[in-house]
């Protein structure tokens, strides 16, 4: 049987696309409100500390950020190719490494809270 790394790339891509679609617009809206000077009570330091301090909160934050990062990296790779940047191996390595580094950083920051 031929071996393929596609399922490993595709599963987080599809899961990430779904997570982005369901969660990212409303999260952008929340930080947009903060950017406009109206910080929702849920985004205050104490609320965010309490949320990120709980096991479920850590799991949700890590899941949303890591899957969104991976999915965006994969889509950016395709975008680079479609815009004529054909050094696919290099682009893929850089983007996937960046997504991996971002996910590890997310886990480290969560464990510090």
């Amino acid at each position: 049987m031929a071996k393929s790394n596609k399922p490993i790339i595709w599963f987080p891509f599809a899961a990430g696309g779904t997570v982005i679609a369901f969660f990212i617009p409303v999260i952008v809206l929340l930080t947009f409100l903060a950017a406009l000077g109206y910080v929702p009570t849920g985004l205050s330091y104490d609320s965010m500390r309490a949320f990120a301090g709980s096991g479920l909160g850590k799991l949700l934050i890590f899941g949303v950020i890591a899957l969104s990062l991976w999915s965006s990296a994969h889509r950016l790779r395709c975008t680079c190719y479609d815009f004529g940047l054909r050094a696919d191996k290099l682009v893929a390595n850089v983007l996937y490494l960046a997504a991996g580094a971002g996910s590890i950083a997310t886990a480290v920051f969560l464990l510090r809270i």
Partner: peptide
Amino acid sequence: REITSLFVGAYCVLLVIALQSLA
């Protein structure tokens, strides 16, 4: 639609920075 991934990716980086400052 492809270009939206650039903004979503950049926003995810912002979220990681937010988490860093929270920690």
